[in-house]
Design a protein around this nucleic acid. Sequence first.
DNA 1: TATTGTTATACTCTATAACTATA
DNA 2: TATAGTTATAGAGTATAACAATA
Lengths: 157, 157
Amino acid sequence: MRKSSPKQAMQQDARGISDATLRQFMGYHLKRAFNTIQGDLTRVLKPFELRMLTYTALVLIVDNPGLSQSQLADAMDIERPNLVVIVDELEQNELIMRERVPTDRRTYALNATLAGRQVYERAVAAVQAHEERLLADVDPQTRKLLITALNSIRNEA
Amino acid sequence: MRKSSPKQAMQQDARGISDATLRQFMGYHLKRAFNTIQGDLTRVLKPFELRMLTYTALVLIVDNPGLSQSQLADAMDIERPNLVVIVDELEQNELIMRERVPTDRRTYALNATLAGRQVYERAVAAVQAHEERLLADVDPQTRKLLITALNSIRNEA
DNA sequence: TATTGTTATACTCTATAACTATA
DNA sequence: TATAGTTATAGAGTATAACAATA
């Protein structure tokens, strides 16, 4: 994660670097914001032995008991092969279980353990508190607008 | 890059996956939006033999002739070691030149070649056109708000 | 044949430590 | 000493192809 250089989003920074062209470039702003939040989240989630991907998976599993790895990969927008290590990690930490489905023995039903649901409660609270701090300057209406705009980006591809 | 699943940002998707908890999670929206835009940009920049990082570097070099690699790394918010291959790539494609500075022989002054400035013109236009399509549903005022909000995220870390 | 989960693999982006040459 | 650029390296995240088990 990188140290921030405040004021650099303006026309010129202290050393006179002009980012006039870049300032219009949404991808650039998105990337920097994501890198910042990703770095923060790594810290916030460390006490729970989670990272952003395992956190996201845990949340979806707790909220959707019994879903399959394919469904989870689809919901997380990642490829199935990449989900395997994520589910492995959650299972090794005993936060979730893979359970065979009798009616279709190819799939696993994913379910959180008691410990998983407890970690979920605390981790969700920690992430919400973090985002509350992060978005302190952004009023609720703008946050909604932000999310809507971000999702419209996602859906336009 | 991943295929999009429209409507999935709503309460439930076609298979009934609930992402109620995730919907409040800004990091998740940011990540998906960034992944989308990053995938798109890879395609948009391919004709110019650029990727997002080399594009960003080229833009900053053209807009700030003679800047050093340290300044560039700082402006791009990446570590100096990671910039080396980016500058290498631009130099090998003959879009920029490293020139020794007589007054401080440790630093290089980075300058775009004529070809670099021409690629810059066309690549910037292509990226702007792409973002215009991507943000078609987002009105100009909201875009500004979006950028401001994204930058406030960046600076709060 | 098609799908679920898996393995192997490769590529990109990021981060740190340590080197060199200059200052 | 300190700084600019570099090398080597390691860790994430992501993507594709191909396999076994099952449908």
